[in-house]
Write a protein that binds this DNA or RNA. Structure first.
Length: 258
DNA sequence: ATGGCCAGCGATGCTGGA
């Protein structure tokens, strides 16, 4: 089974690149973030044409998450929204049951600046996510998305450049740690303990070309699924070329259950 | 070479992203 998570920075704007990814990689499950699609907005017909069933949680002008399922897969239970989240209208959390798996696509708030109300809302969202994952403990669980936290300084191009900024504070990292309680595994780090694995690069100032990125998109797996992880990579090709997102897709492969 | 802001809204320049 092949899993993808990708902050597309607008589904509409990214559709050509998304269709390219679906055709080339043929993933089974795709978690999308920042679709910028309104609640109830129809998905582009091209997705169905490519063989994918889409489940969305719309967030209007900003935000929005979705899960795409490949041929032969259908959504069972769908839960949109996160109990206790600060602003449900931002549409940052979507759970979809796919066979024995519960798949979560999550887009954690940015937080903008430490000490602001939006930063407090980011922490509150993370608290709510930890509560929800505790409630889901024991299930075969995939939590995939843009967490807007660099887990450690090894996930930054230059730790000194982030002193005093969001994405690196103990408040944020501590809450990310709570998401990993109960045996959830950071899939990239499981197979790549040293390699940087950046998933986001600022559009500005040539950051991508200069290798100035961050690892803020994560695939978290419950322990049973982590044991089946055979590969994970950042598809940097989708950060290049015409009309890229500022995030690259993260692709993982799981062995079939034996 | 990991190459130099983008998307939405809406009609102009501002907001948000991280």
């Amino acid at each position: 089974m092949k899993l993808v998570t990708w902050n597309v920075n607008s589904l509409r704007a990214r559709l050509p690149r998304l269709l390219q990814l679906l055709e080339v990689e043929r993933p089974d499950v795709v978690c999308l973030q920042e679709t910028k699609a309104a609640a109830g907005a129809p998905f582009p017909l091209e997705l169905a044409g490519a063989g994918y069933t889409a489940v969305g949680h719309g967030g209007g002008r900003w935000g929005g998450v979705a899960v795409l399922l490949g041929p032969g897969l259908q959504p069972d239970e769908v839960v949109a929204g996160l109990p206790g989240e600060p602003d449900p209208a931002e549409a940052r959390w979507l759970e979809v049951d796919v066979g024995p798996l519960r798949v979560v696509s999550v887009y954690v708030p940015n937080g903008r600046a430490v000490g602001t109300p939006t930063f407090a809302a980011k922490l509150a969202f993370l608290d709510a996510a930890a509560e929800r994952l505790a409630a889901l403990r024991g299930r075969s669980l995939v939590v995939a998305g843009d967490v807007n936290i660099a887990p450690t300084d090894a996930d930054l191009y230059d730790p000194a450049a982030f002193i005093g900024s969001t994405h690196v504070t103990p408040d944020e990292r501590g809450r990310l740690g709570r998401l990993l309680e109960g045996g959830m595994v950071d899939a990239w780090r499981l197979l790549h303990p040293e390699e940087t694995g950046f998933t986001w690069w600022d559009y500005r100032a040539g950051h991508f070309g200069r290798g100035l990125g961050m690892r803020i998109d994560l695939l978290l797996l419950s322990a049973d699924l982590a044991g089946r992880l055979t590969g994970i990579r950042v598809a940097r090709a989708y950060r290049k070329g015409p009309g890229p997102s500022d995030h690259a897709p993260l692709l993982a492969t799981l062995d079939d259950p034996g």
